[in-house]
Amino acid sequence: MTGPAEGTSSTRRRAHETGGTGGTHETDETLARAAVTALTGQLALAPKPGLPDPRDLGARVAGEDHCSLRWSAKALEPGLAAMAAAARRTGSATPELRAELGAIGRSTEHSVALAGGGHRGALWVLGLLVAAAALEPRATGRDLAATAKRIAAHSDRRAPRRPSRGSSVSATYGAAGARGEAKAGFPHMRRALGTLAAARTAGVPEPYARLDALLTVMSTLQDTELLYTAGPHGLRHVQAGARAVIEAGSTSTEAGRAALAAFDADLRTRAWSPRGSSGLLAGALFADSLPLRAVTHRAL
């Protein structure tokens, strides 16, 4: 972490490069759009075991849920742009930046709730990664995760004192949870990036590479949402199911796709949804899109 003088110099340098210190800059908005694109790319992926995907459009209740998630994902963009701007202005991973990101995140959660809800876990992951990308524009993968880790190491001094459901579950079962994942430098996101790279090198088509990355996360993640709904036995059941698909040859093989279909049917019957894995996949897809080569114009 930089000292006060170095941080001030970095802030001034970034202000010069991006055209000012107030409000958001086009680069901040580009990072935010890239993060939302990663999230909607995760949503479009199918079949995702136990998670909303485009197949649900044929089912009234689940279809509404999937449509709502796609719509509300776009409501994250202003908040993510504000997080990037905050990081750019601050210039280093300080406690002040962490507090500002928390405040922006809570405001964004409210906006997302008005737009249909969801994405709380993805907002945590993408918010830290967008801020990290604003601090270190050339960082990718492991380096981006390391910068996010430095931000997450600080406590949010303005956070509500009441414990969240995730923190309560983490305390009960000793699970790392979303905060622990960030403080460890997003190890599951890094594993997903490794799986993506290996699958692409092997010539695996992109949708299967992304599904394999999702299952890699799911096979070991201590998902607090699953612990809350299904307990430790349910979490182990889901982890074992994800490993079974990978061991069957992954999703690009006939045996792997058969195992995936059986796993998905099992989770849907049990109404178990490993949502923590989907947020980390979105983070991996965002990190995979970096560095952003050019600033694009705001979509109409």
Rank of each mutant, 00 (worst) to 15 (best):
G283I: 01
E17A: 12
G279S: 07
T229Q: 12
R138K: 14
H297C: 10
T296E: 15
A81V: 04
A178D: 07
T18V: 05
Y173T: 00
L196P: 08
T30A: 15
L51V: 03
P4N: 00
D264E: 15
L144S: 01
A38R: 00
G231T: 09
P232C: 09
T195N: 05
T220V: 08
G22V: 12
A159D: 01
W71E: 13
T8I: 08
T2H: 10
G234T: 01
L235G: 05
W71S: 12
R190Y: 03
A213F: 12
H16D: 09
T147W: 04
R89S: 07
S92I: 00
M218F: 11
R138H: 15
A131F: 03
K149V: 01
A153N: 01
P163K: 05
A62H: 15
A159K: 08
A262H: 15
T24A: 12
A44Y: 02
T269I: 05
A198K: 11
G141A: 03
H66P: 02
R243Y: 08
V204K: 10
T269L: 14
A32T: 05
A132P: 13
A5D: 10
T37A: 10
P95C: 04
R120C: 01
G102Q: 04
A199L: 07
H25E: 14
S219A: 15
L97T: 06
G127E: 05
A86C: 00
H16A: 14
V125R: 03
